[in-house]
């Protein structure tokens, strides 16, 4: 019994150490400015204040960035997941020349570094006159999100018994009818998983946003918040920590309610043991 208690104490102290930076982020964001510079620092805030959150929403462009990030991530997710669902169905359940090679091209691009693609993409989007728009980021984000979503959905699709589709065909459905009636409902957990991953990837993306956007009206949260750090005279850590917390809100929601979909995606995404 004592061994168990000791083990638990040991394990939990590591877990808490790992989680400490995030705890510190929340604590800093609700401390008044003067308490921040107290020595020694207070672990729990003496006075709790939400003034930084209020200022963030009132005095900065945070809400615009937030809106841009939502639009951008939703648009990327919807586009990528729809294309990838059809593509994965085709890759797993149809036979045609070049199918295998295509599947491995997908895997290959899933590992491709963004910095290789960013220069030609930048040139392409400037030529098309799309630079500095949310649309340009949606296009750029498909470069990493589509291979990722395809690869994930492909292995979810492969997990659906082929007999189900066969049964639907014999029962009188067409291929697309069987897809709609039988495969799509079975794939739903996989689609949710993939959509969550795609959303988080888009939400967190930095490099493309840095290169392709230089106006506040189209800037997403990642570069927007970073700008707040760079552009101010004296760094207001409380404000930045409040922004960090707010920026993590979608993630916290996913973690609280949909975490099983995230771990499921892990299993499907190339690290099957």
């Amino acid at each position: 019994m004592t061994r168990r208690i000791l083990f638990n104490l040991f394990a939990w102290s590591i877990v808490l150490a790992v989680a400490f930076p995030l705890f510190w982020m929340v604590v800093t964001s609700i401390k008044p400015q003067f308490e921040l510079f107290r020595r020694p620092p207070t672990i729990l805030p003496e006075t709790v204040t939400f003034e930084h959150y209020w200022r963030l929403l009132k005095e900065t462009n945070f809400l615009i960035y937030f809106r841009n990030s939502v639009v951008l991530s939703v648009a990327t997710t919807v586009t990528v997941v729809s294309i990838a669902t059809l593509g994965a169905y085709s890759l797993v359940r149809f036979r045609y020349r070049g199918r295998e090679s295509l599947a491995f091209l997908v895997l290959f691009t899933y590992l491709l570094p963004s910095v290789v693609l960013i220069i030609p993409l930048y040139l392409m989007l400037v030529t098309l006159g799309l630079a500095n728009s949310i649309l340009s980021l949606v296009i750029a984000y498909t470069t990493f999100a589509l291979p990722y979503a395809l690869w994930l959905l492909r292995s979810f699709m492969a997990g659906i018994p082929e007999d189900l589709e066969s049964a639907a065909l014999v029962d009188g459905a067409s291929r697309l009818g069987a897809f709609w009636d039988v495969i799509l409902p079975q794939l739903l957990p996989g689609i949710i998983s993939t959509a969550l991953f795609t959303f988080i990837l888009s939400w967190n993306e930095y490099l493309f946003a840095l290169v392709l956007i230089n106006s506040d009206s189209a800037r997403p949260l990642t570069t927007g918040v970073m700008n707040m750090l760079v552009s101010s005279f004296n760094i207001e850590w409380s404000l930045l920590m409040a922004a960090s917390v707010m920026m993590s809100v979608p993630l916290i929601i996913v973690f609280a309610f949909l975490q099983s979909y995230l771990t499921r995606g892990f299993g499907a995404g190339g690290v099957k043991g």
Binding site: P21, W24, M247
Partner: peptide
């Protein structure tokens, strides 16, 4: 969940937090 969180949190957030933790004065 606590262990998993750093992986999914935005790099921007992670960096801001760590730069604050690393701050030389405070």
């Amino acid at each position: 969940s606590l262990i998993l969180f750093p992986y999914f949190v935005s790099t921007v957030v992670a960096v801001l937090v760590w730069r604050w933790l690393f701050n030389d004065l405070y």
